[in-house]
Design a protein around this nucleic acid. Sequence first.
RNA 1: GUCCCGUUCGUCUAGUGGACUAGGACUCAGGAUUUUCAUUCCUGCAACAGGGGUUCAAUUCCCCUACGGGAUACCA
Length: 479
Amino acid sequence: MNGDIRVRFAPSPTGYLHVGSLRTALYNYLYARKVGGKFILRIEDTDRTRFVEGSVENLLKTLKNIGLEYDEGPEKEGEYGPYFQSERTELYKKYADELINKGVAYHCFCTKEKLDKMRKEQIANKEDPKYDGSCRKLTESEVQEKIKKGESYVIRLKIPLEGEITFYDLLREKVTFPWNMVDDQVLMKSDGYPTYHLANVVDDHLMKITHVIRGEEWLSSVPKHLYLYRVFNWKPPKMLHLPLLLNPDKSKLSKRQGDVAVEDFLNKGYLPETLINFVALLGWHPKGDRELFTLTELVKEFSLKRINKAGAVFDIEKLNWMNAHYIRHLKLDYIINRSRTYFEQAGLDISDDKKYKKIITFARERVSHLDDIIRQSMMFFGDLEFSEEDKRLFSQKTSQKIFLYWIRELNNKNEWSDEEINNLVKKSSEELEIKGKDFYFPLRLALFGSSHGPDISIIIGILGKDTAVSRLKNCINPE
RNA sequence: GUCCCGUUCGUCUAGUGGACUAGGACUCAGGAUUUUCAUUCCUGCAACAGGGGUUCAAUUCCCCUACGGGAUACCA
């Protein structure tokens, strides 16, 4: 029905996928899926000075890992490619020339040094820092002469000098900017690459983008963009500027105050399900109180109208809670598979499937991100280490009695069910007349390495009879 | 500085001109369950930025102030 709706996610490859960008991508994705439109990925790699080797691959991988599939983009060519701006420079040049010919753009030969100096003086004089437009006045022959001499130049847009522009943002109704606040934007840099503003407008038009959904940091650039649409005589897309994601101190979410790279979260064992769910709720909320959603459910619920206007603090505590929830409630096999890599990294042997499964069943209740699952499982591998205090507890008569009793009983059989172990717990406690803490603490400590923890039956179920017995023997006093 | 955007518990948010004693979630505190730990469950703490209007009535509409954020690059 809305097959003509086309949205895009247009990151620049400067390192990693930021969680803020993830949210932008997600909202674009959700909207496209909701209305049956197309979701396009375009790489905005026009700044070669900030380009980071490998970051495109990284970005594609992260998008894939998180489960956001695009309809057109790198490695998935559609009708409107290429989807790398660096491969479209001829196009931008063509359109920039067109603007020059129309008289709405001009060559500017001002050096960076000159511009920096101008800006500093303007600030010192309490003027608005702005290009003074000196190259606007150059005649055609002056321009040609400078070009012939090999002077480097940029192409600037001739922004109207007075009046104002009003446009409609899907979130905030009317927004008005006075033109004298808008600078003569550089369209083509001296290295022959376009700036964001030109490339973005040209590509959005050529790629038939109908809705631009992006971060609020672009709101004040809208006048430039709309002016470009006007002088090209193109129909502008609808615009929607998302509120920013914030640090706890309310500044723009940044690396300095914690993780912001999606891949880092993924590596730490935050599940894609969590990240999607959590980030979706930062600045958007469906009707009602529900907050746990799968991607598919989000698509069903999503509506641009319910996006908030105010910035949202990225609260790691709530992320942790949600991730812990998913770790506990998603399919066990899924968590088992996702956890494997952490055990491998730690060099722990998980070749015994049954044992490994039991460990995950136990440990998933106690972690909020998967890389922590190792700390919760260590005690089932290798030898336990005990403090002096632990050893004092072991050497108590009652402790020794418990250990001897259990070694003897356990050795009667090779396979023990949970129920049998629980019965043995009861029986031994009664027969030895040792109860509560005095009974459980030494036993659990000897088997598990901590006096607090799961049921004895769970511990022995994971360790197996042989390991359990050998751990108990280890705590028997020599005399 | 200037322009633009925003403002409900500490945080994410729901909400409507009167049903609001402002709802949910996270955190925190207390309790129940559990031998202990974790889980689970219950209870509690906690907000409409301030000031003016409009109205019979404003958290909800308008204006101002304050505060926060964004932009002000040959970065995106």
